[in-house]
């Protein structure tokens, strides 16, 4: 149901872009106005969310320790799993952001006869997640060849690496295949595992479908008869970044579909769970050092509370304490 809803949304988006450009001829709207609006929404929305998060206080240092603390010099300290210093935290965050350290720990619990609980390794989610995110990043970086003349230095290296196997012409990029495969896996995983199906919302499927649509439309554009003229694309892209936009006539519907999906992704991003991209860096259980007893953390909204003081306590129990011969502050 949620998946169907998400699929319906994608079909509507597809139809909007086709009708908008092919029927209504709103090429300027879809080639210039919507992309600009989407980027603006992305930037403003992203910054707004980060500021909103940053404005929320961090009253306590609540690191989740996943290894040995730093205590005695003769006990090996786990500097990346229970970091004690800022460098340790940076290392921990790098492992988390670049290699999905925590997801790598994943296990699968099974209840066998007996009862006997067994925990097997479960690395598929980690692998698919890693492949998807890295592919997406490389693809994004590859696109910089459209936005700068000459293309930035890193693009050609990435392209030749990514096209290492030199299959087909134009050459098939490894990431093109990888991102589709990873997204397909993530989708099937959601449908296939009853637990996952149960927790998945329409918005979870929507994000998957949207990025899949971008990938597929991009691949179609590069490798099929629906090809967009690369010179036209570069002309539009350069126009957009130099704020002198113009839309070449012959750019083709597949390009508009692709661009529209990308625009929707950018516009949708700050209002969705995709903000985990920024959020991971601010997660208090991961980005703070486990040096609580060594360095004091201050709660910015701390306020005095009602306590039961020693004096009040002794007043209440003086008689019984006296009878028991316990030391007192005041005899009466």
């Amino acid at each position: 149901m949620s998946a169907l809803f998400a699929l319906l949304m994608i079909i509507i988006l597809l139809l909007i872009s086709i009708i908008g450009t092919e029927v209504l001829g709103l090429n300027y709207v879809f080639g210039v106005i919507i992309p600009y609006a989407a980027i603006a929404l992305f930037l403003v929305g992203f910054v707004y969310r980060i500021i909103r998060w940053a404005n929320s206080a961090v009253p306590f240092k609540i690191t989740t320790t996943c290894g040995q603390q730093k205590s005695h010099p003769w006990i090996k300290h786990s500097s990346l799993e229970a970091p004690h210093s800022t460098w340790g935290v940076i290392g921990r965050m790098a492992l988390e952001v670049l290699f999905f350290r925590s997801l790598f720990r994943n296990t699968k619990a099974d209840l066998k006869e007996g009862p006997r609980l067994v925990y097997g390794p479960s690395k598929w989610l980690w692998a698919a997640g890693l492949v998807f995110h890295w592919s997406f990043l490389i693809i994004l970086l590859r696109h910089f060849r459209f936005f700068a003349e000459p293309a930035p230095f890193f693009v050609s290296g990435l392209q030749s690496l990514d096209g290492f196997f030199q299959i087909g012409l134009p050459i098939f990029y490894i990431t093109s295949v990888a991102i589709v495969a990873a997204l397909a896996f993530l989708f099937v995983r959601r449908l296939n595992d009853p637990k996952l199906r149960y927790i998945s919302l329409g918005s979870d499927y929507f994000a998957l479908f949207l990025i899949l649509s971008i990938a597929i439309s991009g691949i179609l554009m590069r490798h099929t008869g629906l090809r967009a003229d690369i010179v036209d694309v570069k002309q539009l892209a350069m126009g957009l970044v130099s704020f002198h936009p113009n839309v070449p006539e012959s750019i083709g519907v597949m390009f508009f579909i692709h661009l529209f999906f990308v625009s929707v992704l950018f516009g949708y991003f700050p209002f969705s769970k995709l903000m985990h991209m920024g959020g991971i860096f601010m997660s208090p259980t991961r980005n703070m050092a486990n040096n609580n007893r060594e360095k004091r953390h201050v709660n910015p909204w701390d306020y005095p509370v009602k306590t039961h003081t020693y004096e009040e306590w002794e007043d209440e129990f003086r008689d019984v304490m006296k009878a028991a011969g316990m030391p007192l502050e005041k005899e009466k």
């Binding site: 998060w53 961090v58 925590s102 769970k273 903000m275 991971i280 997660s283």
Partner: peptide, 15 residues
């Protein structure tokens, strides 16, 4: 911030 962030960024990966 923990609450604010944890409300916003879960992707329901199911790990």
């Amino acid at each position: 911030r923990s609450l604010q962030l944890f409300m916003d960024i879960c992707v329901r990966c199911g790990a």
